[in-house]
Simulated assay, not measured.
Amino acid sequence: MEAQQDPEPSDASETQPPPPAALPARRRGRTALLIAVAAVLGIVGGTTTGYAIQADRPPTPLPPLAQQGLGYPAKPLPAGEEAEPLSAEEDRQVRTDGDLRKLLIGRPAGAREIAPDWLDNGWVPLRSYAHYFDDGAYAYSSALGAEMRRVAGTAWQDGESQGSVILVQYHPSINAQGPAELATLPAVMLARTGDPGEPVKGTAKARSWVWEEAGGADGAPPFRAYASAYRGDVLIKINLWDTAPIAKKDIRTLIERQLERL
């Protein structure tokens, strides 16, 4: 008897089960969105709870001032009473809010008052003040943006000597140019005169200069003196011209007198 032969194997593709159908793509973003929403709700809820807890607590008193005696009035007033306003002697702002021209020092003994073209009844118009600088156009635009309020001035002459005082007042502002101008003045004057200037007694940055300009500037007498200081909201500028050397005490006396007036 003939041995039976095994049947020939069929094609493998017919014997193996078909591959499973591709799974649908997982939707992305939904879980992340839920987590983000939960985080936001947690922050809002925590903040709200924190405010509620803080609102139920009694207010925390502020620590005492490091320097005592700064309050006004010194002691609390009874209900319904108000503190009296400070006098001009106690509040510098009261003095400078009035007629600024009245705070100008008087001319030296023996000198006569003059009225140069840059003065108009004791006031210095902005256009005239701008000509006070080498670059008048720049000074004009800078003054407009530097919270300048008004400028008062006076001028005098005694023989060949001349002098002037200018008070430049600024509105209270971080953009006020007075302190910045005073801070850069030593460098400007050092380049012009070779002298860093002499500090004015009782002030932090005020300085005075005495020097000679050969041939005079713009026809002015050759010997010059200048002093500048800043007090409250007012910038002080004092000029002296003469045909003879100027003593340092002359310009120093003037700036000290003007500071006392403010």
Rank of each mutant, 00 (worst) to 15 (best):
L62P: 02
P64G: 03
R192G: 12
E198K: 11
D11C: 02
I105K: 02
L185F: 07
E198A: 14
P78A: 00
D99S: 15
E84F: 14
L77V: 00
A180N: 14
E89A: 12
L254V: 02
V40E: 01
L235V: 11
A204W: 09
T15K: 06
Q5F: 10
G136I: 00
G29T: 07
Q16E: 07
R127W: 13
L262K: 10
L119H: 03
D117K: 09
A38K: 08
G216C: 11
D117W: 12
D6S: 14
A109W: 04
E260D: 06
K201T: 06
S228V: 06
T243I: 08
L185H: 04
K237R: 14
G216V: 04
L262M: 12
L86Q: 01
L86P: 08
N175Y: 14
F223G: 03
A180W: 13
L41R: 10
V44G: 15
W211E: 09
T15S: 01
A152C: 11
V168A: 12
R149V: 08
A88S: 11
Y170C: 14
S10H: 01
E160T: 13
D99M: 15
A32P: 03
G46P: 05
T184I: 15
T253A: 14
P73R: 04
G45L: 07
R261N: 05
G197I: 01
A74D: 07
A74L: 12
N175D: 14
P59D: 03
A79C: 11
Y132W: 13
Q258L: 10
Y140N: 09
A155C: 01
S87H: 10
L77D: 04
L126I: 15
Q157N: 03
L240A: 00
D218A: 11
L41C: 02
P61D: 00
